Amino acid sequence: MAATTGDRQATASKRGLGESTDHLHTICINDCAKFSANRSDTPAEATTLVTRSRASSSTSRRAWPAKHTDRIVTTGLAALDERATAIRARVSRSARSTPFEHRGAAPAGASHMIHALYDLRGKHALVTGASRGIGLAIARALGQAGASVVIASNDAAEGEACARTLREAEGIDAEFCFLDAGERASVEAMWAYAVRARGAIDIVVCNAGVAPHLGPLVSASDDAWTTTMNVNLHSAVWLANLAAPAMAARGGGSIILTSSISGVRGNKAIGVYGVSKAAVAALARNLAVEWGPHNVRANAISPGMIATEFARPLLDNAEVRERRMLATPLRRPGTPEEIAGVALMLAAPGGAFITGQNVIVDGGTTISDGN
Rank of each mutant, 00 (worst) to 15 (best):
I201P: 11
N295V: 07
L126E: 06
G292W: 13
S57N: 14
Y273S: 08
V205S: 03
A156P: 01
V296H: 05
R312C: 07
T365E: 10
P336W: 04
N232M: 07
E101N: 04
A340S: 12
A3E: 15
A108H: 04
I360H: 02
V275Q: 09
G341F: 00
T128H: 09
E158Y: 00
M190P: 02
S56F: 00
A137K: 01
A55L: 14
S254F: 08
A86P: 00
G370T: 08
Y118N: 10
A249T: 09
G171W: 11
V50K: 08
S276W: 02
A189Q: 14
S276Q: 07
A243E: 04
Y118E: 11
V218F: 10
R90Q: 01
S53I: 00
L344Q: 13
N358F: 01
V149H: 08
A147S: 10
S97V: 13
G159I: 12
A141R: 05
G263W: 01
A194R: 05
A108Y: 03
A174V: 07
G6W: 04
G351W: 04
F35K: 03
L166M: 15
E338K: 04
A66G: 09
H25G: 02
D81M: 03
T355H: 06
S20M: 08
H68E: 07
L214M: 07
S186Y: 14
A10D: 14
R61K: 03
I367K: 10
Q144E: 08
S368Q: 05
A340R: 05
G263H: 04
S97A: 14
I172F: 09
L330R: 01
A298Y: 07
D316I: 01
W225G: 13
A279W: 02
E160H: 11
S221M: 05
S20H: 05
R71M: 09
A169V: 03
A106V: 10
G16F: 05
I203D: 11
V218P: 00
A84D: 06
L314G: 11
H102R: 10
V127G: 09
H124Q: 15
L233T: 07
P333L: 02
M345R: 13
A105I: 08
A197P: 06
A246I: 03
V210I: 14
E168N: 13
K277M: 03
R331P: 05
T5I: 12
N286K: 12
L136D: 00
L330C: 01
R184E: 15
S60D: 02
G16C: 10
N286F: 12
G263L: 03
S262V: 09
A2P: 15
M1V: 06
E183D: 14
K34F: 03
T365M: 14
R103A: 12
L142N: 06
V150R: 14
A2L: 11
H68R: 09
E101D: 12
T21S: 00
V264I: 15
A194I: 06
W238S: 13
G251C: 12
L283I: 12
D316T: 01
T366D: 07
E82G: 12
G16H: 08
P65D: 04
L283Q: 04
E160R: 13
I270S: 06
E175R: 14
M190Y: 03
G271S: 15
L217N: 06
A130G: 08
C177T: 13
I27E: 06
G341E: 00
M229F: 15
R250Q: 14
A33E: 15
R250Y: 06
A3G: 13
I339C: 02
A352R: 14
E290K: 12
